[in-house]
Amino acid sequence: MKLIAHAAVALLACGLVAQSGKPPASPATAAYEKIVAEWKATTDAYSAAVKALTNSDEYKKAIEDKDRDALNKLRSTVPMPDAKPLAERCLETAATFDGDDRVQFYAWALQNGAKDVAAKAAESLLADHVKSPKLLSVVESGSMLLRSLGQEGGQAFLAKIAEENPNAEIRAYALFWPAYMASRDKNASDEAKEAAAAKIAEARTLAEGTMLADRIDAPKFIEERLQIGMEAPDIVGEDVDGVPFKLSDYRGKVVVIDFWGFW
């Protein structure tokens, strides 16, 4: 009898899962998604307000008159949203969960929060999660991280991860970003540029088979495969409706490839 009851509960659970289309999110993921949704609502409202402002007669007139003071005054009526309160809530929420469930909250605070909040998030990540596989999402957007933590803080943060995280892709990103920034620095000395190139090569080896490898290889790919007169490499992917297709499906037609977006 007990067994049947269990089976019934299991079936019921299956039914619930099937109904919602995906398994229910863990409490940590649900809390995280709520924060992300809240921020999206805030930024969407901001975009709508900016759009309304720029479409207003007053604004158009100020543009026409080249009236800088009037424009500044109008723009100040739509302040940029501040992520700091939500980033602070991320830190508080992280503390209510255990282990790696905390990482996503710290990652958000690190990428969106003001410098002091970002620094706190970085500190917690290094103290308790430096070996976590979930750090991938943190190190992937390294340029943002170097901005929010500052060059020095960001580099120290990434150096520790490069040293201690066991995941090759994570270490690769942690090595890559500071070296990439250095390689683009116009004021860098030749030695610094050489050191950066060596680090990027090291990151490339670690990144084999990942998108970072493609990124590092891109200048070579352009040089060797994307010049005028060369046969274009195929693109295999999915369209916006999720239907798979290939660039080579269109062989026999003149094709314009357009990297674009509405944004």
């Binding site: 037609k253 314009v256 977006g261």
Partner: peptide, 10 residues
């Protein structure tokens, strides 16, 4: 015989 193929980044 022409196609415009986008690579959309939205």
């Amino acid at each position: 015989p022409f196609a415009l193929i986008g690579v959309n980044s939205d």
